[in-house]
Simulated scan of single mutants.
Amino acid sequence: MTTSIIKTEEISNNLGSSELRLKDIIKTLPKECFQLSRRKAWTQVIINVLLVGLGYYSLTISPWFLLPIAWIFTGTALTGFFVISHDCGHRSFAKRRWVNDLVGHIFLMPLIYPFHSWRIKHNHHHKHTNKLDEDNAWHPIRPEVFNSWDETRQSAFEFFMRRRFWWVGSIGHWAVVHFDWRKFKAQERADVKLSVAVVVIFAAAFFPVLIATTGIWGFVKFWFVPWLVYHFWMSTFTIVHHTYADVPFKAAHKWNEAIAQLFGTIHCDYPRWVEFFCHDINVHVPHHISTAIPSYNLRLAYSSIKENWGSYLHDELKFSWPLMKQITNQCQLYVTDVGYQTFDEYYAENKHSVNR
Score class of each variant (00 low, 15 high):
residue 43 T to W: 06
residue 66 L to Y: 08
residue 49 V to I: 15
residue 29 L to T: 00
residue 69 I to H: 01
residue 35 Q to E: 13
residue 42 W to C: 03
residue 32 E to P: 00
residue 54 L to C: 15
residue 52 V to Q: 07
residue 63 P to A: 08
residue 51 L to E: 08
residue 53 G to F: 01
residue 41 A to P: 04
residue 74 T to P: 06
residue 68 P to G: 03
residue 60 T to M: 11
residue 34 F to Y: 15
residue 47 I to N: 03
residue 35 Q to H: 08
residue 34 F to R: 06
residue 53 G to Q: 10
residue 54 L to K: 00
residue 67 L to K: 13
residue 48 N to C: 15
residue 54 L to W: 09
residue 39 R to P: 00
residue 48 N to S: 08
residue 68 P to I: 06
residue 38 R to K: 12
residue 59 L to F: 13
residue 39 R to N: 05
residue 35 Q to Y: 04
residue 54 L to Q: 04
residue 31 K to C: 02
residue 70 A to H: 00
residue 49 V to F: 14
residue 46 I to A: 14
residue 67 L to I: 11
residue 62 S to P: 06
residue 59 L to T: 12
residue 63 P to W: 04
residue 51 L to D: 10
residue 51 L to I: 01
residue 46 I to E: 02
residue 67 L to A: 07
residue 56 Y to G: 01
residue 40 K to W: 10
residue 66 L to I: 06
residue 36 L to D: 04
residue 66 L to Q: 13
residue 47 I to P: 01
residue 29 L to E: 11
residue 43 T to F: 11
residue 57 Y to P: 01
residue 50 L to F: 12
residue 51 L to A: 13
residue 66 L to S: 08
residue 72 I to N: 05
residue 65 F to Q: 14
residue 40 K to Q: 11
residue 68 P to F: 03
residue 74 T to H: 04
residue 38 R to S: 10
residue 65 F to R: 00
residue 29 L to D: 04
residue 59 L to M: 10
residue 33 C to S: 15
residue 35 Q to T: 11
residue 69 I to S: 10
residue 61 I to K: 14
residue 62 S to V: 00
residue 32 E to V: 00
residue 29 L to F: 12
residue 74 T to C: 05
residue 61 I to H: 06
residue 71 W to D: 02
residue 55 G to V: 09
residue 30 P to L: 11
residue 74 T to Q: 02
residue 67 L to W: 10
residue 45 V to E: 05
residue 74 T to E: 07
residue 49 V to G: 00
residue 73 F to E: 02
residue 44 Q to V: 09
residue 66 L to D: 01
residue 62 S to R: 08
residue 43 T to A: 05
residue 52 V to M: 10
residue 39 R to T: 15
residue 33 C to R: 00
residue 58 S to N: 11
residue 31 K to G: 14
residue 32 E to S: 12
residue 59 L to V: 13
residue 28 T to L: 09
residue 31 K to F: 07
residue 64 W to M: 13
residue 40 K to T: 12
residue 54 L to A: 14
residue 71 W to C: 06
residue 28 T to A: 14
residue 27 K to Y: 09
residue 51 L to F: 09
residue 48 N to H: 03
residue 69 I to A: 15
residue 38 R to L: 09
residue 57 Y to A: 10
residue 42 W to K: 02
residue 57 Y to W: 14
residue 67 L to F: 13
residue 30 P to V: 03
residue 31 K to S: 14
residue 65 F to S: 00
residue 52 V to I: 15
residue 42 W to Y: 15
residue 71 W to I: 09
residue 67 L to D: 08
residue 62 S to Q: 01
residue 32 E to C: 06
residue 50 L to R: 04
residue 45 V to Y: 02
residue 39 R to C: 07
residue 64 W to C: 00
residue 56 Y to F: 13
residue 48 N to F: 01
residue 31 K to P: 02
residue 59 L to D: 08
residue 48 N to V: 13
residue 29 L to Q: 11
residue 72 I to H: 01
residue 73 F to D: 03
residue 37 S to R: 05
residue 70 A to L: 00
residue 64 W to E: 10
residue 56 Y to I: 05
residue 55 G to Q: 10
residue 73 F to I: 12
residue 53 G to E: 01
residue 43 T to C: 02
residue 67 L to C: 11
residue 47 I to V: 12
residue 57 Y to C: 03
residue 63 P to E: 14
residue 58 S to Q: 13
residue 52 V to E: 04
residue 29 L to I: 07
residue 73 F to P: 05
residue 56 Y to V: 08
residue 31 K to L: 11
residue 33 C to F: 03
residue 59 L to A: 11
residue 34 F to T: 07
residue 63 P to Q: 03
residue 50 L to Y: 04
residue 42 W to H: 10
residue 52 V to P: 01
residue 56 Y to D: 05
residue 34 F to H: 09
